[in-house]
Design a protein around this nucleic acid. Sequence first.
DNA 1: TTTGACCTTAACCTCATAGGAAGGTTTATC
DNA 2: GATAAACCTTCCTATGAGGTTAAGGTCAAA
Lengths: 138, 138
Amino acid sequence: MGILLTIGDAAKESGLTAKMIRNYEQSGLIRKSPRTESGYRLYNSEQLNQLRFIKRARNLGFSLSDIQSLLELWQNPERESRLVKELAQSHLEEISNKISELQQMQQVLTKVAESCKGDASPQCSILEQLAESSTLNS
Amino acid sequence: MGILLTIGDAAKESGLTAKMIRNYEQSGLIRKSPRTESGYRLYNSEQLNQLRFIKRARNLGFSLSDIQSLLELWQNPERESRLVKELAQSHLEEISNKISELQQMQQVLTKVAESCKGDASPQCSILEQLAESSTLNS
DNA sequence: TTTGACCTTAACCTCATAGGAAGGTTTATC
DNA sequence: GATAAACCTTCCTATGAGGTTAAGGTCAAA
């Protein structure tokens, strides 16, 4: 039936925090939930599913604005799956780019760190690179 | 000898923005620079080298607080290279962790997106996963 | 000398995504 | 009826920047 949860229970069930649920409401990502007479937010199972949806999308790294679009598409029975897929693929590109950036850093830093003895002497190739290298500029 | 640059030129030379240089000064990362009578900041070649150092460290993904430590070590002739190397390796670990996270997202999302046709029909495996999957929880 | 272009200044706001604390109300439990 | 737990709002913090505004400084050409 209409089981209604308070924000704390909705948080536990969804894996979000109560804080985040309020934030999402405040930023317009989710609709304002009904309240008890005393002002407590109440969530039904449909809203709970929305919260779970958001949590899973966050776990996949989607931004809140992407999630806004995903929620709208999800709730629109006339949607074209093409739009969802495009969104996902553009996100996948961002992920790839970030991975590449990080790997670039990793590669440079690993190499530089290897040639640092890491002992009690002040001589350190890492600092030397930071101080003088021209190959690290951008 | 003592060539002095205004903040705009120091920014160009270092690859930072004037805005960021002011921020770094304000947050204590770099010392307050001398000023002209009318209040313009002036940078000598030593300070310029510091700015370049910061830029290169940022390019390697070091946080500003890491950079603070790196600058202190750099300027301390009694430093132990061990400390620098530890800092670098702890940063390398963070990088590895981020890469793993992203690769995890990439893997899941790629798989899910593959089975979405991406056409004009509403049926979409991506939304289905976000709506129902239990394997994506955390 | 004035105008215009461009620089700099400080103080503020915004972004995304949260965490935390303060201070007050409500509900649940003993 | 007391106390603890949950909830409420509002504001501050962090990260690392970007943007805006309104003012004043500098310099060269006309």
